[in-house]
Amino acid sequence: MRGHRGLVVVLAGLALLALVPPVAGMLNQPFYIDLLRRVMILAIAAVSLDLILGYGGMVSFGHAAYLGIGSYSVAVMAFYGIHSGPLQWLVAIGASALVALAIGSVSIRTSGIYFIMITLAFTQMLYFLGISVDEYGGDDGMGLKRLSQFGNLIDLGDPVAFYYLVLAILVLTLVIVHRLVHSRFGMVIRAAKSNEARTRAIGFSPYAYRLVAFVIAGAICGLAGALYVNHTKYLSPHIMHWTISGDIMFMVILGGMGSTAGPVAGALVLLVLENLLSGWTEHWQIIFGPFLVLVVLFAKRGLAGWLAGGRHG
């Protein structure tokens, strides 16, 4: 989002998110803290996908891989008795970056439908790997032995403290992605998305820039995975299922590709709607599917375009 209106909308949205715990406390509805925390964690994943999808034009249909790598990093370390939060989360980020480097270095050589298929195939491979490793619960997954430990700094067992930590990480992610996409680096990946032939003709080789963007997005999403497994207190390979990749992609499209904060709105609307509709009818997906199709067809710039007005850039 560009200009003051966009910034005002973003700040207002973040302020509302900050008000959720006291209001939920007053209404005696702790469930909302839980729901919104989940929204924010997946919003971090969606914002990271937007970096490569919305700004970089890389249609990764495998972003759930990094939620999985992040989750497994934390849960497997806990399984072996390593509970240090900083260590677990660093491993989650580092391992996700490495996996993104491997997947990206192959997939970025392709484009279009091939890129989609390769990212999907890699993530399915990881998913089947997760299912088949019985040591860590296989298909059923396993409980997280202990939440990530941060000494006296913060106790993730306190739902409100954990909530604000997630909010802080979301804000940090937004700031980082915002700076990135306006930097020289960001201008190159956006230019390469806009017109690859022109970009090469003026002297940029987009491959390395795209790969770095892909790795950064994977690393951020890996952190979201570390948060997610602490949020659910349970490790499941299903976090890497292709439908989760699809959900994250819909958050970005719904929120507005190429708008830094748009995917947060996308995550909020997607998860809240899912929650409301699934409480109302078992067949909520019948309503939800057409809604998404309408958004894709008619709201090209998503919720961000609608909220911020004007042009983006």
């Binding site: 700076r179 990135l180 930097s183 020289r184 680096f185 960001g186 201008m187 190159v188 956006r190 230019a191 806009s194 017109n195 032939a197 022109r198 970009t199 003709a201 003026i202 002297g203 940029f204 820039y209 770095v212 850039g313």
Partner: peptide, 26 residues
């Protein structure tokens, strides 16, 4: 062959940038 969603000045600045060292500046 230009960048339609960038301004005129952005378009030219990108060409300048391509010849001003590497762009791994974040």
């Amino acid at each position: 062959s230009i960048y339609p969603e960038f301004t005129t000045l952005d378009n030219v600045a990108l060409a300048v940038q391509a010849h001003s060292g590497h762009s791994f500046r974040f």
